[in-house]
Amino acid sequence: MSGDSLEEALTTRTANAPPELLSRSFFFVCAALSIATTIGLIVLLTTEAAKFFSFSAPLVGVTGETASVVEFLTGTNWGPTEGNFGVLSLVSATLMIMIGSSLLALPLGVGTAIYLSEYASPRLRGVLKPGLEILAGIPTVVYGFFAIIYITPALQPFVPGLGTFNILSACIVVGIMIIPMVASISEDAMSAVPESLRQAGYGMGATKFEVSTGIVVPASLSGIFSSFILALSRAIGETMAVTIAAGSTAQFLNVLNPAAYTERALPMTAAMVKLVGGDVTGGGVAYRSVFAIGITLFVITLAMNVISDLVAQHYREEY
């Protein structure tokens, strides 16, 4: 946004000339398209989900009836073929993916960010940063495949009761996937800490370790926190890796029980893929439950992005 008064003064006279109008309206339409996308998303998800919740006739291919919004949001049993539409079992799986992957990605990501911003020589940074970008650029379907074909078999001798599909290896690959996100946003925040603060620390006789942990990290806490939320939201929305690695049995699991991570589970995103591509689909209205999950997912990720924005803005240290 360039609300520069000089610039305005120089361009107002010509602002309504035809080429100016034409180009400006083109650019405006492009920008407005993003709003249209959001509106399209919201309208589509709500109308289709509403159709699902308000359906009164017996469901096609389903023995039971459609679920009310309350049943949908509080039920713990997911089985669209039998008319069980409790989204909580899917949410529990998604939560486990989120928790498991963040246990791996958050410490590693922050560590990476501190190293890159405080310790690495420019030369080393020039190698490591593109490396991390490549990590983020590997398709998620490949990560899913890695999980099921290499990671799970490698873990099986050490983890008793680990099946072909399990949440654990899905957590590991999703964690690896979101490290670059945590690292790059946190590093941006750390690089924004003014050099004078660091110099002040050194001037007081602090070591590099003390400056990093005592000054840089606290000063960039808001940025680090917002990177966490964005990474968690990415983990929630991650689809292919969990579809391939976590299995397709919906069950309501105790999120805090470590043993539950060796189980199979069906996260929300995987449930959507399964509804569209699996064999158990009842068709018709049962299929519409995909929109009900979709809007739940959309609302959760949207809320997390908004929170991250707020955190970044309200707690930002101004220098």
Partner: peptide
Amino acid sequence: FTRVVDVNISNLAGVPSVVYGLLGFGL
């Protein structure tokens, strides 16, 4: 309006890809 567009774009960047698939199919 500009601020809405601004926030909106960063939110759209965070929408899961599977939801975009739904948008594509539905729309």
